[in-house]
Design a binder for these strands. Structure first.
Length: 478
RNA sequence: UCCCCAGUAGCUCAGUUGGUUAGAGCGGCGGACUGUUAAUCCGUAGGUCGUUGGUUCAAGUCCAACCUGGGGAGCCA
């Protein structure tokens, strides 16, 4: 008899048929005569109820079927005599595949804190919450590839190890095979990276954008989807040292095309989750609702599924930075001096300002555009006003910046002038500048933090709970 | 990195103005129970009070430093 996945059994299993299920025991309960095993194999949030007639099984075997143990059960699928599930499996035989000492197995049949599960990241997949999160994560990754494939984008693998440190996206992790205790030194006493593996200093990538542009200016539309590394000492619920980023880059796209793509893309992913992950989303939504009960009325947020549907239904607000400053200056918190940071044209918006715009004023995702050039990267398209650049940041409620992008400066002279102003060594970037020397065209792109999208779709509050093995300062245990 | 909070049983927490032998719920284990839904009922074991140092006759409790975790901020995606 072939093993069926529990998802399949619950969906298509015919009562009266013989089936084999394999999985991990969530709970076992019952009385002298009958035991009930909640069995989960990860294929779905739902458990299969296994009914065990105590008299027809070895007592020793039943004793070893504890929370966390792996078992194989064969038996007859029948209509459930109890409420709570439509079908259940009447066990004819049970094999103990792997026992789990109940005195030592950390995951107990009770509610655990997310903090505790984070410290048991190797086992947290076995909980409802994390199995739901990681099934959704898979679905989102798949949706991303599906979306871009359908749009005719090419998936480009940009390098993980890079010699470029010019983008200034953040602190980098050095990649080196030199002996850390006794590295070769130059005459000036500095570490001599010319003797290193690559013959120069290399780091883990902070962004695939610059290489992505090279691809776009030949293939037309490309996207990257891979790990990205930032050695910033950030300790927040929204940052990781290793995270996954999606970076599309498109030739012949101006800023508006870029925004249209970003909005359509986000909505596609959210729609995909609603179409394909409803069981898991419902579980997470209920879980959130339980948590919200402990919060005061005014701090409660919208139901998770309603929130996702809301984003789908509404156009994102598109607002130039300059107008956003006006909105903020006319806002109640500004007039009552409730903002901690100043609001003036030319300063970067702080979290509190973004939150006000998204969560209080517009109550809707917002795309802020045309930021002052001095607070943005060198490669952004310089607008005709001489003050702003064609940047766009997509701000989501509860998350803040989920996408950062721009139209890229395609004019060689403007670009090199800007690089000089910002002390970016043009000679090291010769390969990047070649795109502007040979057949340069209008092009645009953006970066989406995959885990931030995951935060939004799952409603989880901490970014370390939407990636399997989070890398953060002082934390690389698993 | 900065600000705030926390660290006591496997987990979640309580522990009074510093004072005898550190508690509860859940989980585990043993038992009871005719179909349970994170079952219920009875019983039971389980502790280097984050670490180091200090104050004191006496520290889980007060002080300092450090470590770890959480929330917020900055940096950003």
């Amino acid at each position: 008899m072939a093993r069926l996945k529990i998802k399949e059994i619950l969906k298509n299993g015919e009562t009266g048929s013989e089936v084999v299920a394999k999985g991990w025991v969530r709970t076992k309960r019952g009385s002298k005569n009958v035991n009930f095993i909640a069995l989960n194999d990860g294929s779905t949030i739902h458990n299969l109820q296994v009914v065990v007639d105590v008299a027809s099984f070895d007592e020793e075997l039943l004793h070893k079927i504890t929370t966390g143990a792996a078992i194989a059960v064969s038996g007859e699928l029948v209509e459930s005599a109890g409420s709570g599930q439509s079908v259940e499996l009447n066990a004819k035989s049970i094999d103990l595949l792997g026992a789990a000492d109940p005195e030592k197995y950390p995951i107990q049949p009770k509610k655990h804190s997310l903090e505790f599960l984070r410290e048991n990241a190797h086992l947290r997949f076995r909980t409802n919450t994390f199995s739901a999160v990681f099934r959704i994560r898979h679905a989102m990754a798949f949706a991303i590839h599906k979306y871009f494939n359908e749009k005719g984008f090419n998936y480009l693998h940009t390098p993980i190890v890079t010699a470029s440190d010019a983008e200034g996206a953040g602190q980098m992790f050095r990649v080196s095979t030199l002996d850390p205790k006794n590295p070769p030194l130059t005459e000036e006493g500095e570490v001599d990276y010319s003797q290193d593996f690559f013959g120069r200093a290399t780091n883990l990538t902070v962004s695939g954008q610059l290489e992505g542009e090279l691809g776009a200016l030949a293939l037309g539309e490309i996207y990257t989807f891979g790990p990205t590394f930032r050695a910033e000492n950030s300790n927040t619920t929204r940052h990781l040292a290793e995270f996954w980023m999606i970076e599309p880059e498109m030739a012949f796209y101006d800023l508006k095309d870029n925004m249209d793509l970003a909005e359509e893309f986000l909505k596609y992913c959210i729609q995909y989750a609603l179409d394909n992950c409803m069981d898991d989303l419902k579980f997470l939504a209920d879980r959130l609702k339980q948590e919200e009960k402990n919060k005061p009325q005014d701090q409660r947020s919208m139901d998770l599924i309603e929130k996702l549907e809301f984003v789908l239904k509404n156009d994102f607000i598109r607002l130039p930075y300059t107008e956003a400053i006006d909105v903020l200056k006319n806002s109640k918190p500004y007039k009552k001096k409730k903002f901690q940071f100043p609001v003036d044209w030319g300063v970067d918006l702080q979290s509190e300002h973004e939150r006000y715009l998204v969560e209080k004023h517009f109550k809707c995702p917002v795309i802020l555009t045309d930021y002052p050039k001095d607070i943005k990267a060198f490669y952004m398209k310089q607008n005709d006003d001489g003050k702003t650049v064609g940047a766009m940041d997509v701000l989501f409620p509860g998350i803040g910046e989920i996408i950062g992008g721009s139209q890229r400066e395609e004019d060689l002279e403007k670009l090199t002038t800007r690089m000089e102003e910002m002390d970016i060594p043009a000679e090291e970037m010769w390969w990047y500048l070649d795109t502007r020397r040979f057949g340069s065209v209008v092009h645009s792109g953006f970066g989406l933090g995959f885990e931030r999208l995951m935060l939004f779709v799952t409603g989880m509050g901490n970014i370390r709970d939407v990636i399997a093995f989070p890398r953060a300062p002082k934390n690389a245990e698993f």
